[in-house]
Amino acid sequence: MRFKILALFAAAALIAGCETAPDETAASGGSGGAQATVSAQPSAAAATAQRVGPAPGSKEDFVVNVGDRVFFGFDKFDVTADAQAVLKKQAAWLQKYPNVGIIVQGHCDERGTREYNLALGERRANAVKDYLSALGIARTRVRTISFGKERPVALGHDEAAWAQNRRGVTTLAAD
């Protein structure tokens, strides 16, 4: 494996780009209710005072407060420092909600051939899985799927779009 787990102390503060990540509409389709809240919400009364954001433990909580995706270089699948920071937050969140299973999607930009990109997407998804596993997330909680170049999230045919599309996206599994 070329993938190396880098030192865990290198917790980068910067996770730019993740907060504004586009919604994963197409790729998170599946059967209805697949992305439903997986843990009990706090009672409405207790929450009214301050909370206007997503319910803790929900899909929205994960996407907004943790960050559901990491990005890769062209034809690369190594977990960058930025990506490590996101995955550490993901791992911490997953430790907090130990009953949640996840599916990691691997995606590529359109500047490769279809079959190679399916293989590359698989490598990216597994690079994320391996990193989360090294942070203590049981491998049995993590499934992977590659979409190759089939599900771009950013439209357009330029580097800005391609950079958004070379990604690993962590989605919460249904039940």
Binding site: E115, L118, E122, A127, T144, I145
Partner: peptide
């Protein structure tokens, strides 16, 4: 156990040759 993809038939039609990905490796 893993994703299978890139299939093609053998010339005699008896086999399919393809990739399989296991633990991320195809």
């Amino acid at each position: 156990p893993g994703m299978t993809f890139a299939p093609r038939f053998s010339p005699d039609g008896k086999k399919v040759i393809m990739s399989m990905a296991e633990d991320g490796n195809s």
